[in-house]
Design a binder for these strands. Structure first.
Length: 503
RNA sequence: GCCAGGGUAGCUCAGUGGUAGAGCAGGGGACUCAUAAGCCCUUGGUCGGGAGUUCAACUCUCCCCCCUGGCACCA
């Protein structure tokens, strides 16, 4: 099986923040899960660079657009590298490999008549040299929000994509493949808007700058940045070696860019006669300490803030928090320090960390650090039930649900310790075999957890395995989740708390 | 303004025409392998407000209030 997952390509004028980190981490978890399952995975992220504002920002900083883009793209690359993101490629829309393909796609659409030269008419702000969308123009009472001068009605030549042609196809798509847009609420949003009718969309600009991709055969027009950006998902894998990955299994996005991904993008792909992605998954937003993040409040969880969390709690704790309490569904999530701290202590230190610690300490104390022989089926049924739920949920990208199942098993294992009270068994030589069984079951439980935690907390997984003495290397999901894989006689390693408690 | 989604215990959320649920936080208990962790028990709610339909509504209908997303070229 192949698995192709994408994040949006990030706008190169932005500085990386929790939103970018979240989407990318979610994609990373999906990618790592599928690698664990033995799938042929391609995980793509990158930067979107051809906006007019990039030209402006570059000018303000006295550098060329390319230099500016290079510098800022590097900020994203560095951030993702620092966060251990396992992307297989990083596409930048200013790269030749992308530009050539994007131009080719628009060329194809020109041939089929899906892209045509038409007239664009709209409210133009002469001072800013830009058009305002109808609703914005209205909001500003048809005056420039910058200098108060009246907006003028202006018309110019523009290339359009014939989106209006694809309304029925899109509705049919949503009907036949309801999973195409996820969650359901988003699909309904999209469907209702499509029913309201689709207009053709302008896909070119005549900025005069040469920062951008030319419309084939017309040196006046460049491809509008959003259209250019969408093509990245295809352009990157549109090579002989990578074509096998298309179509994308899932485009992970935030809800604000749903329209482009669930309507314009599939319509263009239909026009290009390409296979459609299997799913567009739109998550919601993070808010910060109960408040919406905004420039005016200056409360962005920015990269400096993220670094602080990583150095205080560790990268895996951040990944766990993002996955477990992130806005994967329709509600926004609150990134609050007190909450993070509680979750760290309760779920990572007290539940998981302590289970590993008490298990290994008991083996050390009662069995000289050697995993004993199994003697009963103790936690097996619980484990198997959990693994089935975990796998099913992971396959649906329901990471919250998967972690629920996994942590339910952690709790179950802790209960098992209390029920079997190894410290009592240890006092009675006649119960040695029973104690062996209990300790084996706990060790096996810890081993199983080390495997299932891999996509979320790769470093922790390795740390557990090293302490348990089975080594960081692990096999595929199917074999590693077989109960009883731990060999009796395994010598456990040095034991230390995985998540030191914070106060 | 229009189109959606949501307002349920201190917090995060699940739920559905028939006597309100979970996790966390709070309170109590027995234990001791463990990171004063874990385990067991437990206090909390007029289910946003109002009216209506019904034998019966948190659950259906209508009105109002508040929050969130989208309203197409702002990536």
């Amino acid at each position: 099986m192949k698995f192709y997952v994408t994040t949006p390509i990030y706008y190169v004028n932005d500085r990386p923040h929790i939103g970018h980190v979240y989407t990318t981490t979610i994609a990373d978890i999906a990618a790592r899960f599928h690698r664990l399952c033995g799938d042929d995975v391609f995980f793509l992220t990158g930067t979107d660079e051809h906006a007019a504002k990039v030209v402006d920002s570059a000018a303000e900083h006295g550098v060329t657009p390319q230099q500016w883009a290079d510098e800022n793209a590097k900020a994203f690359q560095d951030t993702f590298a620092k966060l251990g993101i396992s992307n297989d490629d990083f596409i930048r829309t200013s790269q030749e490999r992308h530009k050539v393909k994007a131009q080719q796609y628009v060329g194809e659409l020109l041939k089929t008549g899906d892209v045509y030269l038409g007239d664009y008419e709209g409210w133009y702000d002469a001072g800013q040299e830009e058009y305002l969308p109808e609703n914005k123009a209205k909001e500003y009472e048809f005056k420039s929000p910058f200098n108060g001068k009246p907006l003028v009605r202006k018309k110019e030549k523009n290339y359009f994509f014939r989106l209006s042609r694809y309304g029925d196809s899109l509705l049919k798509l949503l009907e036949e493949r309801p999973e195409f847009v996820h969650p359901d609420v988003r699909r309904n949003e999209v469907r209702n808007r499509i029913r309201e009718g689709l207009n053709d969309v302008p896909i070119s600009r005549t900025g005069g700058s040469d920062w951008g991709i030319r419309i084939p055969g017309d040196s006046e027009h460049t491809i509008y940045v959003w259209i250019d950006a969408l093509f990245n998902y295809l352009s990157t894998v549109d090579t002989d070696e990578r074509r096998k990955f298309w179509p994308a299994d899932v485009h992970l996005i935030a809800k604000d860019i749903l329209w482009f991904h669930a309507v314009i993008w599939p319509a263009m792909l239909i026009a290009l006669k390409r296979e459609l992605p299997r799913q567009v998954y739109a998550h919601s937003f993070w808010i910060s300490e109960g408040q919406k993040m905004s420039k005016s409040l200056g409360n962005f969880i920015d990269i400096e803030k993220i670094d602080q969390y990583v150095s205080n709690f560790g990268l895996d704790a951040l990944r766990y928090f993002l996955a477990r309490y992130g806005p994967l569904g329709i509600n926004d999530s609150d990134f609050a320090e007190a909450r993070f701290n509680d979750v760290y202590n309760a779920e990572l230190a007290d539940k998981l960390g302590n289970l590993v610690n008490r298990t290994l300490t008991m083996i050390q104390r009662y069995r000289n650090g050697v995993a004993p022989q199994a003697s009963d089926e103790g936690l097996r049924t619980d484990a198997e039930t959990m693994v089935a739920a975990y796998r099913e949920r992971m396959n649906r990208l329901d990471f919250v649900g998967a972690l629920d199942a996994l942590w339910g098993f952690v709790v179950r294992s802790n209960q098992y310790v209390e029920e079997s009270a190894p410290w009592k068994l240890a006092k009675d030589p006649a119960k040695a075999r029973q104690l062996d069984g209990v300790l084996y079951n706990l060790a096996e439980s810890v081993r199983l957890i080390s495997v299932l935690v891999t996509p979320f907390m790769p470093t922790t997984s390795g740390a557990i395995r090293t302490q348990l003495g089975v080594g960081d290397k692990r096999g595929l999901f199917a074999e590693e989740t077989n109960w009883g894989r731990l060999a009796a006689g395994t010598k456990i390693g040095q034991v230390a708390p995985l998540f030191p408690k914070r106060t």
